[in-house]
Design a protein around this nucleic acid. Structure first.
Lengths: 212, 212
DNA sequence: GACGATATCTTGACAATGTCAAGATTTTCT
DNA sequence: AGAAAATCTTGACATTGTCAAGATATCGTC
């Protein structure tokens, strides 16, 4: 049976959900096992029946973060099928929106708080799946001359680096105010993507929020 | 007086130094105030004479990290004066080396662990100074047609995003092994920079470690 | 349906940690 | 020299991650 109904019902997922909620309200520093347990309505040691330690819970929360990102990336690909440039822009935008909407969840998922990712295969798999969506977009862009040809995985790393770096600097407040005062976040993202792309991104897209 | 000589001599800097050493040996998770105090040879509460709380010590350690980065960036600019493309490549390499040589110090400095940077003016200033070095390189690159013209600060954000993202993904182990197995880190970095630059980076530079 | 094995959860405890208060000691200033 | 300030120690407390022992519910087998 997948969803076991013991005392609580589905405590494992309840703990993940509680953790995400606490991240949203109290930030990364406010996430404690005991608070998570309390919010789920169980005693402070109950989580140990489902997670080996705090790292394991964080890994599960991160995996869920990646899963949500992955689903939105797939959704973008579906909604803009046949338009790789638009897929690229909206995939980057989805990434940015995740970070802005839920900064703490984004950080814990993608800012390397997990020390040994190797120990959490589910996390590694979701991360690889997300990367492969990006690689697929990159491949399509290469076929249309939007991105330079060559090693698709390497180009995908470059593109992913650009987007991830942009979002990271954004979250850390490290982007100069002289820039953010003049351009919206979406405008700056598109400006940045334009540095890497062979054909210009239509300027109308700045105003159009992509459909997810 | 700047360097006061009281009981210990210069405990404030000793604590920063001890913190950096602990980061290097025990990682970000292993950094505790009490361990720092012990390593500096003082009691567990002594740091409170110099730092308001743990965040303040972390801010000081981060500021020192930025200072080191800043100095190396300046050094790059000096050593490759008049060669903006090379300055760009080696500045990016300096950034990468900092992350690889001292991952925990890099993370705590640049991965947004400080919640409210605003509260630490010294940190903000070093961060802005470092950015201005990059902006200076970008401006020189624009003048030589190496980077597209236009808003220099915005282009600098794009370039900085690319490098920062690359390094972050590298540290987090999120770069596909299909890529890292075929290319060295420096090669991949230069490959990535080549996606954003109008003139190709000489392939000989891959083998040449830049002088810092 | 009964029963042993297993999964789940609670209670209680402990060490590590961040932080504060009170006091001792040293330096600085007048 | 003596007062004031800075520096450091000791002791305490709440929070937290983690483990051990035990209670309770569920599952698989007969």
């Amino acid at each position: 049976m997948v969803t076991q109904k013991y005392h609580h019902g589905d405590l494992k997922n309840a703990l993940i959900k509680a953790g995400i909620e606490i991240l949203s309200s109290d930030g990364v520093g406010g996430l404690s096992l005991r608070k998570v347990a309390q919010r789920a309505g169980v005693s402070h040691s109950a989580p140990y029946a489902h997670f080996a330690d705090k790292q394991a819970l964080i890994a599960a929360i991160s995996t869920e973060g990646y899963r949500r990102l992955y689903e939105r990336l797939l959704s973008v690909n579906r909604n803009y099928s046949g338009d790789p440039l638009r897929q690229l822009v909206e995939a980057a935008w989805v990434y940015t929106r995740f970070a802005l909407d839920d900064p703490a969840h984004f950080k814990i998922t993608l800012s390397g708080i997990i020390e040994k990712e190797k120990d959490y295969p589910a996390f590694v798999e979701m991360s690889q799946r997300s990367f492969s969506v990006v690689a697929e977009i990159v491949r399509a862009c290469q076929q249309e001359g939007i991105l330079e040809p060559g090693d698709t995985d390497a180009v995908a790393v470059s593109v992913w680096s650009l987007v991830h770096g942009f979002v990271s600097l954004l979250l850390e407040g490290q982007i100069s105010h002289t820039v953010t005062e003049r351009m919206s976040t979406r405008e700056l993202l598109i400006f940045t993507l334009n540095r890497m792309v062979e054909k210009p991104i239509p300027s109308e897209w700045v105003a159009e929020e992509g459909n997810i």
